[in-house]
Design a protein around this nucleic acid. Structure first.
Lengths: 165, 165
DNA sequence: CCTTTTGTTCTGTATATTCTGAACAAAAGG
DNA sequence: CCTTTTGTTCAGAATATACAGAACAAAAGG
């Protein structure tokens, strides 16, 4: 087993998580599940990453809420084992769907509300900028809806744009 | 002046910042510069947002590092005033360029390095997943380079995809 | 020169978050 | 039933982040 190489990937994935606002333990566990070629139970993760069982338990719960990890059961073993979504694009899609819903949609609603009220009373407000901002968010909303509707569609889109055969 | 409406937008923008890993004060100041129709000096921001001068100073420095805010000088006034990039798309582009450079590129480098080493010694490593991950990141890199090269090109792309006339 | 204005940097405090160990719950085995 | 295994939840400790106020720097005005 190439432990050092695994560590290197886990570290990279952890850095990625930090950059995108994901908890370090959560990202590291995810990295471990991605890079290794097997299912892990909680105690094994505790041992491998040297973090507490409670931390592993809650982190795995969060990973499941993002639909990137799931439980499996081994025959004749009471323990729960965990694996990650094996398809990289599907994984990304699941994360993007969740993030859009949790983080983008409320912002769009908020900006649209401000924009609507600014029509009535615009004193001191840069209405043109607000409108631009709203239009931009609307465009992203439309784009995201299309892209996230089907994996095939998004990949088609991207290949078309980047001109890859 | 519709102070409440301005507050509402600043709050929305702050929430957006939090969701994307931006410091709350930084995001609120940015929100203030976006929504209001004028240039602000440090003391005015201190007064309006009720945060300390040191906080405003460092936050503005960060906003400048993202190329979304710049200093201007008023005739016959020693104070520095601050305005935000007036074009919403240009603002987004500047942020994306910086984030790609600071946060995405190192990840791509890291994963590519792991991938290269995994060719030699792949014991216990899910090489197929690593390859998928690397390919996905490469695709994004290509896509981002194209999109960020010119504002017109990206807007064209988006309009083409979303089918907007 | 000395004072005033303006902005930045530094240091300690307050706040938020992350993480651990312990307590707890649930269920299987004997 | 009682014990063991397994996983979750909770309370507090440890850590990291954000922030304010003070000290400092730079430059203009007199």
């Amino acid at each position: 087993m190439n432990e050092q190489l695994i560590d290197q990937f886990i570290e990279t994935w952890g850095a990625m998580g930090r950059a995108w606002g994901v908890n370090n333990s959560v990202a590291r566990i995810h990295g471990l599940l991605i890079i290794t070629d097997r299912a892990w139970c909680i105690d094994e993760i505790v041992e491998r990453l040297q973090i507490s069982k409670s931390n592993v338990s809650t982190s795995l719960k969060e990973l499941r809420s993002w639909n990137v990890t799931r439980k499996i059961f081994q025959p004749g073993d009471r323990k729960e084992y965990f694996v990650c979504e094996p398809n990289a694009w599907e994984m990304l899609f699941n994360i993007m769907r969740q993030r859009k819903q949790r983080e983008f949609d409320p912002i769009l609603t908020g900006v649209a509300a401000t924009y609507a009220r600014a029509q009535e009373d615009s004193a001191g407000i840069a209405v043109d900028r607000l409108e631009q901002m709203k239009n931009m968010l609307d465009t992203f909303d439309r784009l995201a809806k299309m892209a996230l509707a089907s994996e095939a569609q998004m990949k088609g889109m991207i290949e078309f744009i980047t001109g890859k055969k």
